[in-house]
Simulated assay, not measured.
Amino acid sequence: MPTWFAKKASAASAPKDRSGVRVGIPKVLNVWNTHQFWVGFLKGLGIEPENIVFSSDTSEEQGREFGKGRGTVDCCYPVKCMSGHYGELIFGIKKKIHILMSPMIYSLPSFQRGHVTDTLTCTRVMAGPETIKAGFLKERDVFGENGIKYVSPFVSLGDRETVVDQLHESLKDVFDLDYEETVKAVQAGYHALDSFNQKARQQSREILEWCAREGKPCIFVLARPYHMDTGIGHEIEAELQAYGYPIVWMQYFPTDEDVMDWLFGQDIRAGRIKTPFDISDVWTSSYSSNTNEIMWGAKAAARCPWTTCVIRLSSYECGMDQPTYTPTQKIVEATGTLFFKFGDLDSTKPSGSIRIRIETIVHYMSKYSQDIIQKK
């Protein structure tokens, strides 16, 4: 049978050249724990690494210079800080960006996914990009005046099956995307994120192994991802580290099977929890990803012998954190572990009072850590 009219296989479309496109991403909120996804995703689209630009850490100078007059009414300090980050990417970079991308992250790819009710983000944090965008559009289009395309893709990073459709729909016109390259870019993004998380958890495991080998204590940080920002967390953990105490962040605590069985195996066999990542014994409303991880982190820190001290960081008037203050403290202190809370953090860094509290923590750790290790 002649094949004159048979449909010929279409040649693969030539890869689009995006090597000259510069993309700015505000380093805020849940970008702190998903940044590697966005780097991997953009690199997967052909964006050169040097053209992926993150704003600097939050600072009062950044807010005064780049965010002045563009603030919006919001009691959440980490959200209000975003104005300075937007302004810095628009006005504060010598080599201008072409696209400002500030994702609206609806859910997170937490290690607790499937073990809790859901892994959603705080609604105020999720909607933050839309809130802050208004400050740059209220009088005139600041983005357009500076030749910048603004895009805020709504994305459920916790639900990997939906991400391709969401990002393709949001970004197809901005990057001239076809569906197939979106699929590959999303795969590259998750690969980068998973690899980074695995490496960070391995480093935390090495810290704990060193503590076990040397009989030394370490400090466990219970906080939201954006408290890693030096302008929001005020480098409190860094000041403690300067005294020689290793720091383990809750987000990157090792989740290897042997470690989880060692910490939670007895509770699982007793029927108190179903899996190592189950928090139903201490927190039944397990919808919020960062809140879930904080509650789980309190359980892990309470059980691990070498985490003799937990510091809890929380921003001013955080409605998501407030219900967890007492439960986390009770969980941690139930095993004799030291617990110190730095609450209501905002733009002001009270250096004097922080220094006094740091000295207090160091005193108690030096006095009681060995007893806590032996007891736990």
Rank of each mutant, 00 (worst) to 15 (best):
C309R: 05
T326G: 07
V21S: 00
Y287A: 10
I358E: 05
A192E: 13
L167S: 01
K367C: 06
M104I: 09
Q202V: 10
S156F: 12
Y77T: 10
R22C: 02
R140H: 08
T255D: 13
T324S: 11
W210Y: 15
G189H: 00
N51R: 04
D165V: 09
F342C: 08
I311M: 04
I132K: 00
F342V: 07
T326E: 14
V21K: 01
D17R: 02
D281P: 06
R272Q: 13
I132S: 01
R160S: 10
I361S: 01
T307G: 02
I52K: 00
G319L: 04
E333Q: 12
E257R: 12
F253T: 02
A302T: 05
L222W: 02
K16R: 14
P217A: 06
C122F: 04
V116R: 02
M1E: 12
D74T: 15
R140W: 00
R312Y: 15
G40P: 03
E181A: 07
T3W: 14
F264S: 07
K16A: 09
D258V: 13
T360I: 10
V53L: 09
G231E: 02
P153T: 06
I356E: 15
N30I: 11
G20Q: 11
Y325F: 15
Y245C: 05
L240G: 01
A270P: 06
L89G: 01
C318H: 03
V164K: 06
D258T: 15
Y179C: 06
S285N: 14
S289L: 06
Y245T: 05
V21E: 00
G144R: 07
V21G: 00
R357A: 10
F154I: 14
E237D: 11
K80T: 15
G69T: 07
A188F: 01
N33E: 10
S195T: 14
W249I: 08
E88T: 03
W210L: 15
E181Y: 07
D178Q: 02
I268A: 03
M126K: 10
F136W: 00
T291F: 07
P246T: 07
L29R: 02
R205A: 15
H35L: 14
A185P: 04
K349E: 11
I331M: 09
W296K: 08
K133E: 09
L89I: 04
M320Q: 14
M104W: 04
K274A: 13
T337L: 08
K95S: 12
V248M: 07
S288V: 12
S107Q: 06
K330N: 12
G215M: 05
V332E: 02
Y190P: 04
R213P: 03
L193F: 08
P2I: 09
A12N: 12
G336N: 03
F5I: 11
E65M: 11
V79P: 03
P129T: 03
M320F: 14
G114V: 08
C318D: 04
D256K: 07
Q266P: 02
A6I: 14
E239C: 06
G135H: 04
P153S: 09
N51Y: 01
K8C: 08
P129K: 01
Q241M: 13
D344M: 12
M104K: 12
Q322F: 14
L240D: 04
S13Q: 15
L345E: 02
K43R: 13
V183L: 12
K16S: 08
